[in-house]
Amino acid sequence: MKKLLLYLLLTAAALLMLYPLLWLLGASFKTNDEIFTSVWFMPKVLDLSVYKRAWQTVTPYTMGHYFLNTFMIIVPKTAFAVLSSVLVAYGFARFDFPLKKLFYGLLICGMLMPSIVTVMPMYSFWSRLGLLDTYIPLTLPALFAGEGMFVFILIQFFKGIPREFDEAARIDGCGTLKTLFLVLVPCIKPAVISIAVFTFLWTMNDFLGPLIMIQSVEKYPLSLALRLSVDSTGQGYELRTVIAMSVIGLIPSLAVFAIAQKKFVSGITAGGLTG
């Protein structure tokens, strides 16, 4: 009986959490009038043509164009972030070197550094190099292990692997890098996947970065294109087109989460963030 009550409570809470998303999906089929008169998410008619209009967008380009732009940022950024975080975390976790404490301190400092503080100087920096309105300011920093949190999580994972693994690899003739990529990285695959997934999700969500660095509509990633569409729709405009665009915009994040979910969640929960 008590258990049943608990399930009911949990289900109600879960529905409350997910209802806004359901509502968004439903609203993409509704007329303005219906959106503002009915609380229930199910639309009266399912007219899929709205998604065709949404795909065309109100801007000169289709959503496919903006998706492609977004992926041109995401793919290199994710590769850079994973590679650099793994190397740096390996260095911290397995080796002793001069000024190690100082650099570790800087790593923690970096995690506490608010991005709104760094964004203004970085804007001037990239502007002086003439690289504004390119994807370099958005992707290149990932090559320098810019996300301290990732390095921190990976260090905890590396520390969880017995040092005997390294020694065995060394005896078998593996050098420093071979040991890392052939022996250690396969052991911490869930953590590496978590980092890739987080980079993907955060880049999908990033708004301030592109807002400041990218100026031409042609190069807009999805987030800026959405914002532009909302702004350019006036009074009396059909909301469902913009809402359908939002729904399409959420699909990549949800898909990646669904695919990676199992490994991803174990990657964070075992992440030793708690230590």
């Binding site: 650099s84 190397l87 740096v88 390996y90 260095g91 911290f92 397995r94 080796f95 002793d96 070197f97 001069p98 000024l99 190690k100 650099f103 790593l107 090559l143 320098f144 292990a145 390095v151 420093t176």
Partner: peptide, 8 residues
């Protein structure tokens, strides 16, 4: 180690 953390 220093070389490994050089990106950082």
């Amino acid at each position: 180690g220093l070389l490994l953390i050089s990106p950082f």
